[in-house]
């Protein structure tokens, strides 16, 4: 694991995430949201979980970002720009960040470097998914189907 790559990815991800949270134009924020997930996926690559990184790109950029962008288009007549910004959220976020960082830095037992690990192959993940994680997998499939149908029912136009 390379610390140069790590710093680069961390700065990229956090900058894109901050842009997504604060940019005034909705569309720009949605696109930087997608960018933040590219950064996050590359940090997963760095951690040796390539499959999860690819799944993240697939799900978030291929599906969720497109969904968000479409929703912005469909609700465009409302506000092109987000006007209200509640400054009350800033101290809370900073406090959460400060508190968590303080406790992370205080905990000495997690100041460790990564142990050596044989590469995690897709085959191992597939085997795990199909043996010990079959039930969660089926439940997630059911959940996704239910979410699909629910979303459709929510947005379907009622005939008058």
């Amino acid at each position: 694991m390379n610390s140069g790559a790590f710093i680069l990815i961390a700065i990229f991800t956090l900058a894109a995430a901050l842009a997504a949270a604060t940019l005034r134009k909705l569309m720009h924020a949605a696109l930087s949201f997608a960018l933040a997930f590219v950064g996050l996926a590359s940090s997963f690559f760095l951690l040796g979980a390539e499959f999860v990184g690819l799944a993240l790109v697939f799900v978030y950029i291929g599906a969720v970002a497109v969904l968000i962008v479409f929703t912005i288009l469909l609700t465009r007549r409302d506000v092109e720009k987000d006007r209200g910004f509640n400054w009350g959220g800033v101290p809370i976020a900073v406090a959460v960040f400060g508190g968590l960082t303080w406790s992370i830095l205080k905990t000495q037992s997690i100041a460790i470097v990564a142990p050596r690990m044989p590469a995690l192959t897709v085959k191992q993940i597939g085997a795990a998914l199909m043996t010990s994680y079959v039930w969660p997998l089926q439940c997630v499939g059911l959940l996704l189907t239910a979410a699909l149908i629910g979303a459709l029912i929510l947005v379907i136009e009622e005939k008058r």
Partner: peptide, 9 residues
């Protein structure tokens, strides 16, 4: 943590 705080923000 930083990402979480940004999301919270």
């Amino acid at each position: 943590t930083a990402l979480f705080s940004i999301g919270l923000l």
